[in-house]
Amino acid sequence: MGVILEVKNLTKKYGGLTAVNDFSFEIKRGEFIGLIGPNGAGKTTVFNLISGFQRPNSGTIRFDGKDITGMAPYKIVNLGVARTFQLVRSFKLLTLLDNISVSCLSSRGKKVAKGHGVDEYASTILASVGLVDKARIPPIILPHGDLRKLQIGKALGTNPQLLLLDEPFSGLSHEEQDVITDLIIKLHDDGVTVFMTGHVLRELMHLVPRVIAMHQGKFIMDGTPQEVAKNKIVLEAYLGKGEVFA
């Protein structure tokens, strides 16, 4: 089990604000890992930096041994790193099937899709995220839970090795959260390395065996959810923010 993602001394500044501050960690292939921290901790920024949507001021990111720091987002996707967004995004006027087809038409997605045909492959993915009966409708009329599923489906279309999920549960009811949880567990069982953020620790507690905690852009600790839940700095960070915790 080699290291799939290595992040070293990553720093990102916005004007005077340091959103990510000298941040380092490693993820092994096949891991299932969470990134937690209160709102504004810098989790989304870390994901933006890994996926190439923003350039770090300093630091390096290696995926599978290859330096991907500052690479164009689509190139990173085609190396095998897919992501979802905290705020759901979709191609408003395309059908769900076409929403997924777009990822299957990326150079990485195409390699897998070719054997089956793009539509066929896309509808398989749509089936695996539980949306196949809505293949022909556009996403504008979907409930929020389905949109979250669509996000994951779009990421899967690129055939990722590492999947970055930014707050996959935000805005969902408990039932919807359970469906997404099952989906993520299944993906991990299929061999995808999953790295996900959450600002409510409870959501991740029973899901992931390992958690990285951050606060105000800084690394705080790395351990099991139980260890993290006992950490004083983490507790203070959450209490200070008045977040729901436990």
């Binding site: 996707v77 995004r89 191609f91």
Partner: peptide, 16 residues
């Protein structure tokens, strides 16, 4: 059309 609807999303789908 995906680029028209959401260019960031298209890029995240691996589109150049």
């Amino acid at each position: 059309k995906s680029i028209r609807d959401d260019d960031i999303g298209a890029e995240a789908s691996g589109i150049n």
